[in-house]
């Protein structure tokens, strides 16, 4: 059993599939996130794939502020992801609402709606920081899968 658990945990760390959700970003953070996938940074080296489908994703990357309208969507997307999963909030907006936090329709940071595991600051966050956030998220995975992961 020990071997299989080890294998699974390795596989989880080396095959993180991302779902990138733009809540209400100014697109600054989005551009930086997508830049990670270009040949310059090429995160597919580490098995990272941007799947664009919550049902296949392991890591939810959220950029931008949460507002009254898209909080439902954010919740649904989070719920549709199978366990084990982690959430990475990106940019000042994702952390706290950023420069939009005073706006009447803004709820605030991502953690107002769903539990967030990793916070990546910046306005916009740099690609290196985002990659670093994903790597941190992978460590969270290990902690999580020890706790409640479904396992085999």
């Amino acid at each position: 059993m020990g071997l299989i658990d080890k294998l699974i945990s390795t596989a989880r760390r080396r095959s993180p599939w991302l779902l990138h959700f733009d809540c209400g970003s100014c697109n600054g953070c989005d551009i930086e996130t997508l830049a990670c996938l270009t040949p310059v940074y090429d995160v597919e080296r580490f098995g990272v794939v941007n799947v664009g489908n919550p049902k296949h994703a392991d890591i939810l990357l959220v950029t931008g502020t949460v507002n009254l309208r898209n909080r439902e969507v954010l919740t649904v997307l989070f719920e549709q992801m199978p366990e084990p999963k982690v959430v990475v909030a990106i940019g000042a907006c994702g952390l706290s609402g950023g420069i939009f936090r005073e706006a009447p329709n803004v709820v605030g940071g991502v953690d107002k709606v769903i539990p967030v595991d990793v916070y990546v600051p910046g306005c916009p966050a740099r690609p290196e920081a985002i990659i670093d956030g994903v790597v941190l998220a992978l460590e969270k995975f290990r902690e999580k899968s020890k706790g409640k992961g479904e396992g085999k």
């Binding site: 390795t10 596989a11 989880r12």
Partner: peptide, 15 residues
Amino acid sequence: QPFLDVIKLMAKERM
């Protein structure tokens, strides 16, 4: 990589 992907998928939640 494909093997790692599949192993990871097999260990995810059924839904």
